[in-house]
Amino acid sequence: MKIFEPHAHMVSRVTDDYERMRDSGVRVVLEPAFWLGQPRTSVGSFVDYFDTLLGWERFRAAGFGIHHVCTLGLNPREANDDRVNAGVVELLPRYLEKNGVVGVGEIGLDDMTAKEERWFLAQLVLAKEHDLPALVHTPHRNKRQGFLRCLDIIRDSGIRMDRVLLDHGNEETVKITRETGVWQGFSIYPHTKMDPPRMVAILRQYGVERMIINSACDWGVSDPLSVRKTADLMAEAEFGVGDIDRLVWGNPVQFFSETGRGTEAEWSTPPASTLGATHAGNSFLRGQSVETWGKRA
């Protein structure tokens, strides 16, 4: 089984997690930029955080044979913080063309404040300008209202509906989002919120089209294998292999590759963590005639 894990905060996970994820079939892990459990007090902290997602974490994942990609953005919680909000959004254009960035996110709403709405809209516009999809975090409380408000803002921004993934959905929100054309994300947690049996029931009722599931694992109680566990439960519930593959691989690959930031072929092949392999048999160039380039003018 090939898995594209479309929402995992790997900076807070240990190497055992990478190993278990790889062994369960994870080929690609997408890390959305989010908050770190407590507010950051300066824009510089975001610079270093974004650089970590683009550099070190990508290299760390490659060491386990997993492609690491990310979405970057100002999360809705810190959108309320005037110490950082404007500065981070101003910083984003410098990051959105970077290699490994496959979208803008997590952006969206949390407490549904005016500031959250303002910076959510501004970042949807950035996604449009850089031809990137948007990964949208929705409120964990008052879901129905939150989804409706997110959809209003998404429509106002003019971004294509099929470039938007509305995450953290449940039985209630499927009814709202199903006909809108957006992709629907579900975070599967071990104890609370959406668990694998609930997810399988939703899939049985609505099918897998435009559905994406993730573990949303982070520094809290969460399970980096919950995508695999849900897929196994689907198999027990006699879903076809094609449907399972589409849910855990085909759908996220399609959504995040459509704007040219990655391809299925690239993501199906393990990444290199060293150049050595590419150079095998290539370094032994000795005693050959040497072409001279360039002259000091």
Partner: peptide, 30 residues
């Protein structure tokens, strides 16, 4: 902003192994 887009726009084709002298240095284009 835009240097990052070079690998996507130009591609990552590997060059053939070849020693060249560039200015003062010798390098392997491979």
């Amino acid at each position: 902003v835009w240097l990052a887009s070079l690998p996507r726009r130009v591609g990552k084709r590997a060059l053939a192994p070849e020693l060249v002298k560039a200015g003062v240095a010798t390098l392997n284009l491979g």
